[in-house]
């Protein structure tokens, strides 16, 4: 966004900014350092992986992606994501609602606990699930009695992913709901709306964007999670999601297959990023569209030429 604003600045405005700017040399050095870092540590590995994945030609790439175990891993990953995302959408909204709308004992503790998955190593998450659901674990005897398998099977992998991705939705929603306050909801109540109607017509539309960001982040992480899922999987080919399958191929010295499947994950990640960027620009355009009508000082929009020129100090 900042870039597009910059381009449209008139010479007078660019000059007025100079005072606070670093000297040209410092600028150049800083930009180069950043560019080199990004190139060396982000772009180069990505490019090399794609190169390796496609080195034997598109037919081999396609074959690697369509072999049965790979298709199974895609099915597993999609299943996990489809189960985890709605669950965490619900949990996240419930947690954000509770933390921003009610006063209760232990609220600070709950707020801290939401961040636990950020702080804790995924391996520990897997081990915790084994301690709880494994045959030697607390619920082990009961599960065995009812012939239920949680760890070393799909339910365990889903649980591990739920745990790891728990904070994403709640973390996006809490600041949003805090800043909006409860008055619009109270207003809806005085107008006769039931609790559910308030949620559906007032709360949900106002948190729409934050919720979407949260869901996208959750999806991305759910598809990419390795550590926690690795611990609770049975590691049998055909019963593991994509990240584990990539690791498995790699360990079997099937390098180019591994690169091909890994590139699939990378595409997913890039797609997610683009989706998020697109949503963000739509969101900002929606807000900017409103802003210039009231002629409020819009400096960060830059989406529409009129918006910008009308607010350029002359």
């Amino acid at each position: 966004m900042a870039g597009s604003v910059r381009r449209k600045l008139t010479p007078a405005n660019t000059r007025s900014r100079r005072g606070a700017d670093e000297s040209r040399l410092t600028q150049w050095i800083l930009i180069s350092v950043a560019a080199i870092f990004v190139g060396l540590f982000l772009v180069l590995p990505l490019v090399s992986m794609f190169y390796e994945a496609f080195r034997r030609g598109p037919m081999a790439y396609f074959a690697a992606l369509t072999q049965e175990n790979t298709l199974d891993s895609i099915r597993y990953t999609l299943t996990i994501a489809l189960l985890v995302v709605p669950l965490n959408a619900l949990f996240g909204m419930a947690a954000a609602w509770a933390l921003t709308r009610f006063q209760f004992r232990g609220k600070a503790l709950l707020t801290t606990l939401i961040d636990l998955p950020f702080a804790i190593s995924p391996v520990v998450v897997g081990v915790m699930l084994i301690a709880l659901f494994g045959y030697q674990g607390w619920l082990g005897p009961w599960l065995r009695e009812h012939d239920l398998k949680v760890v070393f099977a799909l339910p365990g992998m889903v649980l591990a992913t739920v745990f790891v991705t728990f904070p994403f939705v709640a973390r996006e929603l809490i600041p949003m709901m805090q800043s909006q306050g409860t008055e619009p909801e109270q207003a809806a109540l005085t107008l006769g709306a039931s609790g559910w109607q308030v949620f559906w017509h007032v709360t949900l539309p106002s948190i729409k964007w934050a919720l979407l960001y949260g869901l996208i982040l959750t999806t991305a992480r759910a598809m990419g999670e390795f550590g926690a899922v690795f611990v609770v999987s049975n590691r049998i080919a055909g019963e593991m999601p994509i990240p584990l399958w990539v690791d498995n191929l790699n360990a079997d010295h099937r390098g180019s297959d591994a690169f091909a499947v890994a590139s699939l994950l990378a595409f997913l990640a890039l797609g997610t990023l683009m989706l998020k960027a697109w949503l963000e620009s739509r969101h900002q355009r929606e807000e900017a569209a409103g802003m210039w009508i009231t002629a409020a000082p819009v400096v960060n929009s830059g989406e529409s030429e009129t918006a910008f020129t009308s607010n350029t100090p002359s």
């Binding site: 306050g181 008055e183 619009p184 109270q186 207003a187 809806a188 109540l189 005085t190 107008l191 006769g192 709306a193 039931s194 017509h201 007032v202 539309p205 106002s206 729409k208």
Partner: peptide, 26 residues
């Protein structure tokens, strides 16, 4: 909900995702 009382909040508390028409019609 059933008191049938009109309340105007200090900060107005309009529904920001709705138009003027939809706010009034709510």
């Amino acid at each position: 909900q059933t008191r049938n009382i009109g309340f105007v909040f200090q900060g107005y508390a309009l529904f920001k995702t709705m138009t003027v028409f939809d706010n009034i019609a709510f």
